[in-house]
Simulated assay, not measured.
Amino acid sequence: MRQIPVDTSAAMVMVAQPPAPKIANRQTGEIATDRETGAPLMTVDVMFVMDGNAEILNLTVPNTGISEELSMGTPVALTGVVARPWENEFNGQKRHGISFRAVAVTSLVAAKVG
């Protein structure tokens, strides 16, 4: 499958929706897992702002790559983001799009000491 690296270094990124488990099977509630590591997968929506334009991206991230303090509005750094074009057919209708995956989503807010 094609993977296109995404350069996020010039963008401002913040959490739009906190991480949630990625569901592999809606009927059984089974959580999706990473094919290589077996780690449970999470989804996190981020607001990606660059050149005055904002987009909401839905990222898939292994749970091991999510820092625990990700709440709405938290500024974050994205590591290893790739875009993957996809296409499928369901009930005779073709659908296509781009999915985004990251190795890690890390809070840029300093942890409170105390």
Rank of each mutant, 00 (worst) to 15 (best):
M1A: 14
M1D: 11
M1P: 03
P5H: 05
D7Y: 03
S9I: 01
A10K: 14
A10V: 05
A11K: 01
V13G: 05
N25T: 08
R26I: 10
E30N: 02
I31A: 09
I31K: 06
A32E: 11
A32W: 05
T33V: 14
T37Q: 04
T37R: 12
T37N: 12
G38D: 11
A39L: 07
P40H: 12
P40Q: 13
L41Y: 06
M42K: 06
T43V: 15
D45I: 06
V46G: 01
V49M: 12
V49P: 00
L57M: 10
L57E: 04
N58K: 13
T60I: 12
V61Y: 07
V61N: 04
P62R: 01
T64F: 03
T64D: 07
T64S: 13
I66C: 11
S67P: 04
S67V: 02
E69T: 12
S71G: 07
G73M: 12
T74W: 04
A77V: 00
A77Q: 00
A77E: 01
T79C: 00
G80R: 00
V82W: 02
A83Q: 12
R84D: 04
W86L: 08
N88K: 09
N88R: 13
N88P: 00
E89L: 02
F90C: 03
N91H: 10
N91I: 04
G92S: 10
K94F: 07
G97N: 08
S99F: 01
S99T: 14
F100N: 05
F100D: 05
R101D: 09
A102C: 06
V103Q: 04
A104D: 00
V105N: 00
L108P: 02
L108M: 09
A111T: 09
A111N: 10
